[in-house]
């Protein structure tokens, strides 16, 4: 069954996140021969439209306004509504990011539509779209299908294959968005704490530290290993609570849920809340002094030992590899 599918692109610091292309890949499956459109919301972002076209969007709507430089729920929802009006989709996909997970249920509620959140797999079975998503913090997975005129879904980064890049351009259209004057939430200030460098949600390699790292200075050796591997540094809640690092680095049920190719857990015991954020990583390495630590149960490779000896040794070996 042909469907029109709208993808709301996800941005970080005015750059497209890879999950936008992954959502376009999912959209192509759901469209089943129908049209795929992308919506770009932001300020001074129109230059990114071509890249969405190249990654499979037949149509790119650009909602570029000063007001979109900062996320305000009503403003972003209005832009999505405008695109829905213009494109008349049967499905709308968002990233399962801070913005996507906030706007998607607004849109779904307005259309009384069902929504699949945090989707890690999409398939067509006959005319039905089947979404797979984790439940019970990844201790089980549910496959769901959604009835009705509109399907809404949010896509977890790093799980679905990105739409391949082609020479296609996509038809780029400006989308004028009417904003109502009586928006009631106002962002007074933003305290930027998220670390620069590799985006944790989308990193292919993550070196992560827990209480065992013992201090903020202790994270330096993890930073070094991550830098050599071209990865990002994450942390357990314990390490954040202890003040070793900022909460923007937290991985777990509360922080970020990540699915890298390689996750190196250093001095992390492996509490259930932490496992919920990383247990679907492709390959897990655990480095811990305590051979009984639960993290070893999910690890593919374990090293029982002092991380302050093991991590520098790994960094040295990795340097040799990439030399």
């Amino acid at each position: 069954m042909k469907r029109n599918v709208l993808v709301v692109a996800d941005l970080r610091a005015n750059q497209l996140r890879n999950v936008s292309f992954e959502a376009l890949g999912a959209a192509r499956i759901i469209a089943d021969g129908g049209e795929v459109a992308a919506l770009l919301i932001g300020h001074e972002v129109s230059g990114l439209a071509a890249s969405l076209g190249a990654h499979g969007a037949d149509q790119v709507y650009v909602a570029d306004r000063e007001e979109f430089g900062q996320y305000v729920p009503d403003h972003y929802a209005a832009a999505v509504e405008q695109a829905i009006e213009a494109f008349a989709p049967q499905a709308v996909l968002f990233a399962h990011s801070a913005i996507g997970r906030d706007v998607a249920p607004m849109v779904a509620a307005r259309h009384k539509a069902g929504q699949a959140s945090d989707v890690i797999h999409v398939e067509l079975v006959g005319d039905d779209v089947i979404f797979t998503r984790p439940i019970y913090a990844g201790k089980a997975f549910v496959k769901v299908k959604i009835a009705g005129d509109l399907i809404v879904a949010t896509i977890r980064p790093n799980n679905l294959p990105a739409h391949e890049e082609t020479g296609a351009l996509g038809n780029v259209t400006d989308l004028p968005v009417r904003l109502s004057g009586d928006v009631s939430t106002h962002v007074r200030d933003v305290l930027k704490k998220a670390v620069s460098g590799v985006d944790l949600s989308e990193a292919k390699i993550i070196v992560s530290g827990g209480r065992g790292v013992k201090s903020a200075e202790g994270f330096a050796s993890l930073q070094e290993l991550a830098a050599v591997l071209g990865g990002a540094v994450g942390a357990s809640r314990g390490a954040c609570d202890a003040g070793y690092c900022d909460y923007s680095m937290q991985i777990g049920q509360t922080g970020k849920v990540v699915t890298p190719d390689l996750y190196i857990a250093c001095g992390i015991s492996g509490a259930i809340q932490h496992l919920a954020g990383m247990s679907n990583s492709k390959v897990i390495v655990a480095i811990n002094k305590d051979p009984e630590a639960p993290i070893f149960k999910v690890a593919d490779y374990g090293i029982v030992g002092d991380l302050f000896e093991v991590v520098p040794a790994l960094t040295e070996e990795a340097r040799k590899l990439f030399a």
Binding site: I130, V142, V144, I146, F296, V298, Y301, G302
Partner: peptide, 23 residues
């Protein structure tokens, strides 16, 4: 609007390999 097609448990992970030897 959404109906459950199937619930599955994650594939059991084989025991990981603990590496031995000096650092």
């Amino acid at each position: 609007r959404s109906s459950v097609v199937e619930i599955v448990l994650p594939a059991a992970k084989g025991a990981g390999r603990v590496l031995e030897g000096d650092t």
